[in-house]
Write a protein that binds this DNA or RNA. Structure first.
Length: 334
DNA sequence: AATGCACTCAACCGCACATCT
DNA sequence: CAGATGTGCGGTTGAGTGCAT
C-alpha cells in the first residue's frame, strides 16, 4: 500500500526505445552473471541509465534467447483464441502455453487482429458470446460463430468439470489459482486427448448435423450452475445460454443408454472411456477405479459424487469435434 | 511529393501480489 | 503483524511505418 514506484527518482533515467548499445550492456551483464539477479540493482551494476522495470521488460520481451520472432502461425492463433475463451485476458498465462512468445506480443496480436476478427464474426471478444445484433442472423457467419462458441464452451466445461472434481477430491490440498487449474487441465492427458480429438476429426457426428436428428437433450445449465460457484469472471456464458437453441444439440441425457469400454488413452491418467450403444456412439469418461462399478451400468458412475463433473466431461467428449476453426480463415482477411 | 489516416508494436505506467524485514 | 520492497501483470500510449488520397 502506498508503495513508491520503482522509477521514482527520474533523474538521469533514460526512457523510450532501447539502443543497440544498451541492449548489449544488458545482455552482457545477464550472461556474465548467469541471470539478472535483482532487477532494481541491475541497471546500476550493468551501467545502464534505465530503471529496473524497463530492463526487465526489455529482457523478457526482446532479448531473451528463447524468444521466437516472426509472425504467429495459424496453430498459435487458434491456441490463443481457445485459451482466451477459457482464461480471458490472462496474457502471461496464455503466453506460458506458447513457447517463445511473450505476453506483450500475444496481447498485441489479440488487440490488433484476433479481437477484430471475432467482432467481425459477431462474437464478443471478451465473453466469446454472440453479440446481440447477431442473434437473429441465421447466416453462415453466425453458424461459424455458434460453432466457435460451442467449442469454447466445451473446453470450458471440461475445465469446470475437472475443477469441480479436483476440488472435491483434493479438498485438503492447498488451493491453486484458477488459471493453474485450467492450465493443468489443458496440459493433462484429458486435455491432450480433447485436443487430439478436435484435431483428428474423431469419428463422431457433428453436433450441427445431430441437431435435426434424435439428439437427446438435457440441461447444461444444471451442470454449469453447480460448478459455476468455483469460478469467477469468464463464466458469464453459462448463465444465459440455456435458452439458446444453438447449444441444445450438445446437451444429452444418459438415461437408458448402455456404455461399453472403449480403447482410449485417457486410462493412463486414471480414466477410462466408455462408448454408448446408441447410433451416435456417444462417449463417457470415468475414473478407472470406478470401472468395476461402471461396467454393468453407467448409472453407477453418473450417480456418484462426481456426477456433475462426469456429466460435463461426458458432454465434452460427446461433443464431436470437427476442429472447426475455418472461421479464422474465412474472416482472416487482414 | 505532401498530407492524413490507420495500424503495429515496443515501451511505459500503475496496480496487485509475494516476499522480506 | 505491519510496513517496505521486489516483481509480475494487464491496460494504455505514442513513435514509427505503410498505405490511400
Amino acid at each position: 500500500m502506498g508503495r513508491t514506484p520503482c522509477c521514482d527518482n527520474k533523474k538521469d533515467l533514460k526512457k523510450g526505445p532501447w539502443s543497440p548499445e544498451e541492449d548489449e550492456l544488458l545482455l552482457n551483464y545477464i550472461s556474465k552473471n548467469h541471470g539478472h539477479g535483482s532487477w532494481r540493482s541491475l541497471p546500476k551494476l550493468a551501467g545502464l541509465q534505465r530503471c529496473g522495470k524497463s530492463c526487465r521488460l526489455r529482457w523478457i520481451n526482446y532479448l531473451r534467447p528463447e524468444i521466437k520472432r516472426g509472425p504467429f502461425n495459424k496453430d498459435e492463433e487458434q491456441l490463443i483464441i481457445q485459451l482466451h475463451g477459457m482464461l480471458g485476458n490472462r496474457w502471461a498465462t496464455i503466453a506460458s502455453q506458447l513457447p517463445g512468445r511473450t505476453d506483450n506480443e500475444i496481447k498485441n496480436l489479440w488487440n490488433t487482429h484476433l479481437r477484430k476478427r471475432l467482432i467481425a464474426m459477431g462474437i464478443d471478444p471478451q465473453t466469446h458470446e454472440l453479440l446481440a445484433s447477431n442473434c437473429l442472423n441465421h447466416n453462415a457467419s453466425a453458424s461459424a460463430a455458434t460453432r466457435h462458441m460451442a467449442q469454447w464452451e466445451s473446453a470450458r466445461l471440461e475445465a469446470e468439470a475437472r475443477l469441480s472434481r479436483e476440488s472435491s477430491i483434493f479438498s485438503h490440498a492447498p488451493e491453486k489459482s484458477e488459471s493453474d487449474h485450467f492450465l493443468r487441465l489443458w496440459n493433462s492427458n484429458v486435455g491432450k486427448s480433447f485436443r487430439k480429438l478436435t484435431s483428428d476429426k474423431f469419428a463422431c457426428q457433428s453436433p450441427i448435423s445431430q441437431a435435426s436428428s434424435s439428439t437427446k437433450c438435457g440441461l447444461l445449465s444444471a451442470v454449469t450452475t453447480e460448478v459455476g460457484n468455483n469460478l469467477t469472471g469468464s463464466s458469464t456464458m453459462a448463465g444465459n445460454q440455456n435458452e439458446d437453441l444453438a447449444y441444445r444439440p450438445f446437451l444429452i441425457n444418459t438415461e437408458d443408454v448402455e456404455y461399453k469400454p472403449f480403447q482410449f488413452n485417457t486410462e493412463e491418467e486414471g480414466h477410462k472411456l466408455f462408448q454408448s450403444n446408441t447410433e451416435a456412439g456417444e462417449f463417457k469418461i470415468c475414473q478407472s477405479n470406478t470401472e468395476d462399478r461402471m461396467a454393468g451400468s453407467v448409472s453407477s458412475c453418473s450417480n456418484d459424487l462426481e456426477n456433475s463433473s462426469d456429466t460435463a466431461l461426458q458432454l465434452l467428449l460427446d461433443y464431436p469435434i470437427n476442429d472447426d476453426m475455418s472461421f479464422l480463415e474465412n474472416n482472416a482477411d487482414d
